[in-house]
Design a protein around this nucleic acid. Structure first.
Length: 231
DNA sequence: CGTTGGATTGGCT
DNA sequence: GCCAATCCAACGC
């Protein structure tokens, strides 16, 4: 079963959280390749475009106040509509794919209530290969399943997602989401690789998954776990 | 194992 | 011109 439009017609933080455990499928060259989503990040929009957040009693008060007052400066939609981000200003449930660092593509799904449109999206940061893993490993030229889609650009590349999918409907078509099983243990942390909004905790991770992206720098986690030997 | 710098396009000021 | 929601090879220890 594909995830319905209504799934994406909710705020980015809610969708990002709920997307963990869901399946991203791509029917390509007559075969199915699929990943179970294990890491996501939510991106909101500029202040003033999200008045309904005031009614979000379930959102942490500090985060809610911050988004209402200052918006989300780390979002690609923060400075208004442009050629690149226009899909974020459209209806939820469509893919927003962009190029970064001149060579990597990253995939997002547009989210947010349809009645009160806001330019939100959820970045797909990592996945666990569940179908066609051999195809994905070959495409990425890696030998370990945990290296296939453990990062936003890796995920896009492994699954054959490019800017050609920009604006495509995520609820139908060759590239789409299927139900899967939601994850109940989730870690919430600051987003990775951004500057200026490091205090906003909008990254969602399936706790304990070995398929998540690697923290870039000295991520001092108290009680850091011991190193494990590979096989 | 941790850290660093280079790659390389295109969006935006 | 500047530099990004990244990745990985190359180092140093």
């Amino acid at each position: 079963m594909a995830l319905p439009r209504s799934f994406f017609a909710r705020d980015a933080d809610v969708v990002a959280r709920d997307l963990l455990g869901r399946i991203l499928v791509h029917e390509l060259d007559g075969a199915r390749i699929a990943c179970r989503i294990v890491e996501t990040e939510a991106y909101f929009g500029p202040a003033g475009r999200n008045p309904h957040l005031a009614t979000r009693a379930d959102m942490p008060a500090r985060l809610r106040a911050r988004l209402l007052r200052e918006g989300d400066p780390a979002s690609h939609s923060f400075r208004g509509v442009t050629e690149r981000n226009r899909v974020m200003y459209g209806p939820p449930g469509r893919f927003y794919v962009y190029l970064i660092y001149g060579m990597h593509e990253c995939v997002n799904v547009v989210t947010g209530p349809q009645e009160t449109p806001e330019p939100q999206a959820v970045l797909l940061r990592a996945g666990e290969p569940v179908e066609g893993s051999a195809t994905m490993m070959a495409r990425r030229d890696v030998t370990r399943a945990t290296d296939v889609a453990s990062g936003p650009a890796k995920l896009a590349r492994a699954m054959g997602i490019t800017r050609a999918h920009y604006g495509a409907d995520a609820t139908r078509g060759a590239l789409r989401f299927e139900a899967g099983a939601p994850v109940d243990k989730v870690d919430v942390t600051p987003r990775i690789g951004i500057v200026g909004a490091e205090d906003l905790k909008l990254r969602y991770v399936a706790r304990g998954s070995p398929h998540v992206s690697r923290a870039p720098l000295a991520t001092k986690l108290r009680g850091s776990r011991s190193t494990r030997r590979r096989r």
